[in-house]
Nucleic acid binder design. Structure first.
Lengths: 321, 321
DNA sequence: TTGTAAGCGTTATCAC
DNA sequence: GTGATAACGCTTACAA
């Protein structure tokens, strides 16, 4: 391994001179700098991260945490985060596994972006208390070192119910998600509150967990309870809605006609199934980009406000037929 | 920040004793160890990565590199890699951006797994020459510090053509992928060689780049050239095949009847479109898991053999109707 | 069993 | 402008 001492020796200067040359200090002749740079290049010098980080106390790396790697969903978020961070000289790594939570206190990363319901809020607060900077995308957390960028679940869920109500249905099902997921909790709570406003419509919650399989289970229940009257279904995410399709396509019930179905998140599959799945869309890229901006502002010691990413209703065949 | 010196002071011992205690050395009384561990815990001690890495010359972190973050595709690979690495005490980070290529020589990661056609082979060889260990999933590279885990593209592409040939078609289109992508090149080369064997079938290559849009372009050409005779189409990946559906659904040509279409990679969407997309499937989880095993073996100084992940034909409506 | 001290590769504060 | 040198937090011979 070649380090700055090797370069120093080759160049016949001291290691501090090399360091200055490498880091573009102005205390050095342009001539010696060029000479040193040339030697560094010839020797294939690459600075050692550990040594550098130890001294600088920062790595210029941001870590992002997801609940799981599933879903094309995350790709666009990563692009939003990654390209924004890049502009500011930061690198992005996607971390997996419980042990990687330590990257923050271990100082491997300068900041963390979290969209991972398995990450405990106490743990986040704990790190924040110790001066680490964090952006959360999946919970509310009030702390001077933490900023939030949340989806406007309230707007979406309210609209979803209002939209179904307009269809004059006697019954509306809400297929819930896992209780640990913030997005799920808020969507459910909002939907139920909104449904309370309307007397002539029965509200039924079917327990789900954001997986396709739980959507299938919900579909079975809906078929069993079916009484020839059109019903509404608000699946709290598209994946479960797609599970509902899986079952209903082999049943006499027609999506769009007998069942007005609406999901959330605008999963790509929703545009390929028949009829198309109505859902709520939002820019995942922007969501990520805003999160990246927040973490940079936090690291810059700025006062950071929280943000909301708005969603819009996407009408397709599953509610319109 | 609390370090081992703080613990040492609290415990009234030297820093080496603390280090021994923390690292489970047998040179220490169980009693003092417990006492030190307790204090470390009370002080919320977390070892500093940089200090540790600087001394140990390793981080127990493996980096994985993807071309882009697109696609649910990668999720399963990451799970395969991640869970395998975890069993062996390694962490996994997904790296993005050109600068992150330096993580290997910078010694931030102990090894790299590459599925990223934008990563130059010369760069890989260069690092390997310097003693770094790498597993490639998207190219052939013969080097003692590099191991490969490739898809059996040859088997798949051969079967794809043979299968289409059985349908007695006068013409078979091959929609190609980007030339930089290894999987694309091999599939194309294999398909063309296989097609050469059959005289009574015209082979036509339509240039694509693995994107949906290029599939749409190909579809337009196919429609233009259509002469009432059934034709075969081998799209070198499912994404392009799905692009073909996009266009053909608004044309008189029927997939499965007029056009026998087959893709590659078993994208989830293929099972939701109508008719279902015939394709080649393989375990992405296993692909990742095997790559993880290879990198661990390389790091253990073992002699590592290359591996192949086999694919199987999945028949659905797009070729069967 | 525990302590002392050197060293990992870098940066940055001093003198010169 | 350049060079010694200390420091970053940790591991590990070696000494006691």
């Amino acid at each position: 391994m070649v380090g700055i001492r090797d370069i120093a020796q080759q160049a016949g200067v001291s290691i501090s001179t090399v360091s200055y040359a490498l880091n573009g200090s102005s205390k050095i002749t342009e001539e010696t700098r060029q000479r040193i740079l040339k030697i560094a290049d010839e020797l294939n010098y690459i600075p050692n991260m550990a040594g550098r980080a130890l001294k600088r106390k920062q790595t210029d790396i941001i870590g992002i945490y997801f609940t799981d790697y599933g879903g094309y969903f995350y790709g666009q978020i990563l692009e939003g985060v990654g390209s924004t961070l890049k502009k500011h000289g930061y690198e992005l790594i996607a971390c997996s596994g419980k042990k990687s939570h330590l990257f923050l206190p271990e100082k491997l990363i300068d900041g963390a972006i979290i969209l991972d319901s398995s990450y405990k809020s106490e743990e986040i607060t704990h790190y924040a208390d110790r001066g680490h900077h964090i952006v959360v995308m999946d919970r509310e957390l009030d702390h001077k070192n933490v900023s939030q960028v949340l989806l406007d679940n309230i707007g979406g869920a309210t609209l979803a119910i209002d939209y179904l109500i307009q269809k004059n249905l006697a019954k509306i099902y809400v297929v819930s998600g896992p209780d640990i997921a913030y997005d799920s909790r808020i969507r459910l709570k909002t939907a139920l509150e909104e449904l309370e406003r309307y007397d002539n419509c029965e509200a039924v919650v079917l327990t789900g967990d954001f997986t396709k399989e739980s959507g299938r289970q919900a579909a079975k229940t809906i078929i069993q309870e079916w009484n020839e009257e059109p019903v509404g279904v608000f699946a709290l995410n598209d994946e479960m809605a797609i599970g509902i399709y899986d079952i209903l396509k082999d049943s006499p019930l027609q999506i769009g006609k007998d069942i007005k179905l609406i999901g959330f998140d605008n999963d790509e599959i929703g545009s390929y199934i028949t009829p198309g799945l109505s859902t709520f869309e939002y820019s995942k890229y922007k969501w990520g980009a805003v999160a990246a901006e927040k973490i940079i502002q936090l690291l810059d010691g700025k006062n950071v406000k929280n943000d909301l990413i708005y969603t819009t209703l996407l009408r397709r065949g599953s509610t319109e037929k």
